[in-house]
Design a protein around this nucleic acid. Structure first.
Lengths: 317, 317
DNA sequence: CCCATCCTATAAGCGAGCGTTATCGACCGC
DNA sequence: GCGGTCGATAACGCTCGCTTATAGGATGGG
């Protein structure tokens, strides 16, 4: 019934003392004010302005409206400014989820880039394996998830339907074969999976283990998984002690080294694709987009294989 | 740019969880909400709602708007209610001014009537002679002024231009001639002004004195004004002591009596008209109008001469 | 696995709110 | 008394914002 525009007009009249001046101060013409006041008076059923001579004066009811204008308009401005800050990257929160090995490499650099460019954008980071992060994305508890899929593995393995998401490839990550330095195969240029069929294996996360089994199956053996751990530092330690061999993504090897471990390119080659996922809507939120772009840059500067860099889709709201 | 309607919509979406439910709760159709959100998103340049499956979820910016809705809408409602209270006579202030003899009679009864009917209407009363009260009315320091004009005296005596006001006659007040009980003329039915030409006179307020001089002039003499006081109790005292005679309006005589004073109808008769004045705009303010009506009633129940009771003009806003 | 159902998006139409320009009448200072 | 200034009003037009109608997509039950 009564809106902010009406209050703004009443306040202007109160401050300026005349319709004409109020109109000028608001960028309107005088009749606009005249009509606006009449409409307000009709709606409220009360006289709001006393026409005295060629000046005007607010009645008690008019002063009530003028008095309320300040707080209301200030609150509206505050709301607008908050939203504008989010839109202008002077504010905003991004809830980011990534799996552990991305957390160690891609994510820190991206966070740093965003912080440097948009100091007031706040990124919340949570470590999570792809199934969980995607669930969180779906549940609205996450804005941006970093996931991976092994090459050859069906991207939509049935476990996840990614149609609803915007999937941005970040990095092609080569999977290498890690073995003790003393291992006979350690001196060759590339390692052949089939040659290690008899070795005990050390597997990582469930999906990594699945990938191993899948590759081994293609190579004609069933791996003897002796150890399972999601901690790649532990994997390296186990390998170094000669307790087994393991598949390790190249991305890990840049942060986790071990003198006694050799990680060779593998034959047949296997790679995993690291992707960023978000929803189409969230992908248009400035802070999310800025974070995504930082992730792309971060990935570009550390790719092994040439990054499949898809141009940012242009969204129009 | 952003208005209260937009905030209301965002809040409804936030509370209801879907456009359809929000539309229902606001009495709109679903497309109205859909479009409203789109408009808001265009204006703010940000995504406000995340479309997820067949539900929707607010983004950070959307939650900002929804969060601001409460205070803003509450303030608007408060403003509306305050104005409605004034319009509905559940509130409101009337600044009333009256000259002394009206203060003693007309006003108290009217105040009582208003208080009884509209307990929350607050009337401020200030005693003032007509020139001052009319100036106050003109200056916006008064909403309703009770004035009087002597019959025969030009209503617009040059001193006041009453065109700008709504003038409501309240009472015809007969002017009597007060003299000591022992005065030779005190036993007659009516007093003749000319017969008292030689007496010393006691005059009241400046306008009353002017009226006296005018009447005397018509009767062919110039009164010897021995005393001047605006206090009618004092006038009565002076008359009682035989220090002079005086013109006293009948209205006064109902509250101020004196055993030793006789107040006779006068020949030629003279009356004053007591009127209520306000501006056309203020006359449409409910509380002012209620007070005016109470004054009319108050006058009607104590008129000497038949009250010229003009029907209330009907205003349409 | 398909269908019924619920949701949102979009198109088209329309009415009214709300602004403009033009003009008038009233008031006030010079 | 006259001109400048202010408010009211009429006439006009546009845009905003709601409606109805309809399509498309997600979801859940039979």
């Amino acid at each position: 019934m009564i809106d902010a525009a009406g209050l703004r007009v009443m306040r202007a009249i109160s401050e300026q003392g005349s319709f004409t001046a109020a109109a000028a101060s608001l960028g309107y013409t005088q009749p606009a004010i005249s009509q606006m006041v009449r409409r307000l008076e009709q709606r409220t059923g009360t006289v709001l302005v006393e026409r005295v001579g060629r000046n005007v004066r607010l009645t008690e009811a008019g002063r009530v409206l003028a008095r309320h204008a300040g707080p209301v308009l200030a609150a509206l401005d505050a709301a607008e400014e908050e939203v504008a800050a989010i839109a202008g990257l002077r504010s905003g929160r991004v809830r980011l989820m990534a799996f552990p090995s991305a957390s160690a490499t891609l994510v820190p650099r991206a966070l740093s880039l965003v912080k440097q460019r948009f100091p007031d954008v706040h990124i919340t980071f949570t470590e999570a394996e792809p199934p969980e992060s995607i669930a969180a994305l779906r549940a609205g508890e996450c804005d941006l998830a970093i996931a991976f899929a092994y090459e050859g593995t069906d991207a939509t393995r049935g476990e996840e339907d990614l149609d609803a998401f915007v999937v941005t490839p970040l990095l092609e990550d080569e999977v290498r074969l890690a073995m003790p330095r003393e291992h006979p195969a350690a001196h060759e240029a590339t390692a052949h999976l089939a040659e290690l069929a008899q070795e005990p294996w050390i597997a990582g996360c469930p999906r990594c283990r699945g990938h191993l089994v899948q590759l081994a199956d293609a190579a004609g053996f069933r791996p003897d998984v002796a150890y399972e751990t999601e901690d790649y530092v532990a994997v390296m330690g186990l390998v170094a002690e000669g307790l087994g061999v393991a598949l390790i993504p190249d991305l890990i090897l840049r942060t986790v080294h071990h003198d006694q471990v050799v990680a060779l390119p593998m034959e047949p080659a296997s790679r995993r694709t690291i992707t960023a996922l978000t929803t189409p809507d969230l992908g248009r939120v400035p802070a999310v987009r800025a974070t995504l772009e930082a992730l792309i840059e971060s990935a570009g500067s550390q790719s092994t294989a040439p990054t499949v860099r898809q141009p940012e889709p242009t969204f129009s709201i």
